Simulated assay, not measured.
Amino acid sequence: MAGCSSVFAAEDDQVNIAGSSTVFPVTEAIGSAFSEEHPTVNVSISKTGTGGGFGNFFCAGRTDVNNASREIADAEIDQCGNNDITPLEFTVATDALTVVVNPEADWIDCLTVEELREIWRADGAERWSDINEDWPDEELELYGAATTSGTFDYFNEAVLGEDINHKSDYYATERDRTIVQGVQGSEYAMGYFGFSYYSENPDSIKAVSIDDGNGCVEPSTETAMSGEYTPLSRPLFIYVAKESLADSAVRDFARFYMERAATDLVSDVGYVPITEDQRDENLERLEEQVAEVNG
């Protein structure tokens, strides 16, 4: 992408970003548009997972922005504080976390939350027929988010709950396209990730509707926006280091991001943009912080 690189470099007019692979498509699209208007600024984006981004980069003072598919954890706030980093949270989109299967899996179109929990919990189902005796007596082949991922944390909380552990015997990765390829390659595979990665591949993988007690609801930007798609619709965030707002390039990028998060740049990559009211709240809060840093 013009003006963007995938490695970090220490130089003037540099904005360094790490974190969530789910939020990556939003930040990539907005970063590309920003670079077209600010060709002298290098926007560097890396996929590290939400937790990996906070722990290894943002709270360590190595990046200005962290993409996050969950809220920052207390331990991460403490780590940031120990390094004199003040994380500023901004909601930038809504995602419909999507469960996908192979298109040849014609026996499944919808799962209840309970069935989904049975598939993904530790010591849970091992074969499709364990969920429904009419389904194939074939081993489940599961692809999902790595434990450093905010998507893993959110799925754990929304589907499994506090008292149930996520399966450990599955293909765990930070690379969502690896999950796409795994599900494409096996009739008995299942995976989950942000809606954007499904929307790129709607003909080669199949989205599963989710029944949270009120009937089957397909994942989509519309059902995420309306609140119908539960419990797997979720807010997406970026965190900006307050101290980095002393840098004009980071200030300009943050303002640009807040403005564009309410536009088709977000919907074009498969997520729900923030509202104009949310945009205005974000910008007002950002300017307050900028004034404090540069006052």
Rank of each mutant, 00 (worst) to 15 (best):
M1T: 14
A9E: 15
E11P: 05
E11Q: 15
D13M: 05
V15E: 02
S20F: 00
S21H: 09
F24L: 01
P25T: 09
T27F: 08
E28R: 09
A29S: 11
E37S: 15
E37M: 09
P39H: 07
P39Y: 05
V41M: 03
V41T: 15
T50I: 05
G52R: 11
G53S: 01
F57I: 09
A60R: 15
R70H: 13
D78G: 03
D78C: 01
G81M: 08
N82H: 10
T86H: 15
L88V: 07
T91K: 15
V92I: 15
D95E: 00
A96G: 08
T98P: 13
A105R: 02
V113R: 07
R117N: 13
E118Q: 14
I119M: 06
R121V: 06
G124N: 02
S129C: 04
D130A: 02
N132Y: 07
W135A: 11
P136K: 10
P136E: 08
L142D: 09
Y143N: 06
G144F: 03
N156D: 15
A158Q: 09
K167C: 05
D169H: 01
E174L: 15
E174F: 05
Q181V: 13
G182E: 02
G185M: 06
A189F: 10
M190P: 11
V208I: 14
V208T: 04
V208M: 00
I210K: 10
I210P: 04
D212N: 12
G213R: 13
G215R: 10
E218S: 14
S226K: 09
G227C: 08
E228D: 15
Y229G: 04
T230Y: 05
P231Q: 11
L245V: 04
A246P: 02
R251G: 07
R255C: 11
Y257N: 11
E259F: 01
E259V: 14
L265A: 08
S267P: 00
S267V: 03
I274C: 05
Q278P: 00
L286W: 07
E292Q: 10
V293F: 02
